[in-house]
């Protein structure tokens, strides 16, 4: 979990030599640099996407910058017009209700009651796909979707990047070889 490491290194003054980064920031940087080529051409049926901004990554982690990166990547992958903003969002987003150990703590009814706010805001977008870049969020959003009978697909971001990959070099390689 991003925050666990970030805050852990900071709060307990743990010595380390590496630089700590989020995969989301890297996706965005790689796309901007042209190292990761993606296209939304696959999305012919116009699947609508929205996003769950993870508290630990955004509000408590890297702030709106990473939330903006997240949106940038989704728009590149799914098409500019196929992203639907969710409210509230970014650093002000609702917690999904699964974090903070809630998924493990076992108070299922309370957890789902907590998740109702999340369900309502996601449902209001009418999106077909909810991107959840955090594993806790992923599990919880999937659960509240089925519990409150939503009809979206809850997925990680990488599945869609894979779908949108443009494999120029690779196809050339194929022809040559």
């Amino acid at each position: 979990m991003y925050f666990a490491v970030l805050e852990g290194l900071r709060r307990f003054k743990i010595p380390h030599k590496f630089e700590f980064i989020s995969i989301i920031s890297l996706y965005a940087q790689w796309i901007r640099d042209g190292r990761l080529k993606v296209s939304s051409a696959w999305n012919v049926q116009g699947l609508k996407f929205t996003v769950q901004d993870p508290c630990k990554l955004v509000r408590q982690g890297l702030g709106d910058t990473v939330a903006d990166d997240l949106r940038f990547v989704i728009k590149q992958v799914a098409g500019e017009d196929n992203f639907i903003e969710v409210w509230p969002n970014r650093s002000n987003n609702y917690c999904c209700g699964g974090g903070g150990g809630a998924l493990q703590a076992g108070f299922k009814e309370n957890r789902r009651r907590h998740g109702k706010a999340k369900f309502d805001q996601l449902a209001a977008t009418g999106a077909d796909v909810v991107i959840t870049p955090c594993h806790n969020c992923h599990t919880q959003v999937k659960d509240i979707c089925s519990h409150y009978q939503g009809n979206w697909e809850t997925t990680h971001l990488w599945n869609w990047i894979e779908k949108a990959l443009v494999m120029e070099d690779r196809s050339r390689e194929g022809k040559n070889g």
Binding site: W87, P88, N92, A124, T125, G126
Partner: peptide
Amino acid sequence: HSVLPQPPD
């Protein structure tokens, strides 16, 4: 806490 927009529909 927050001002939120109504869902568009």
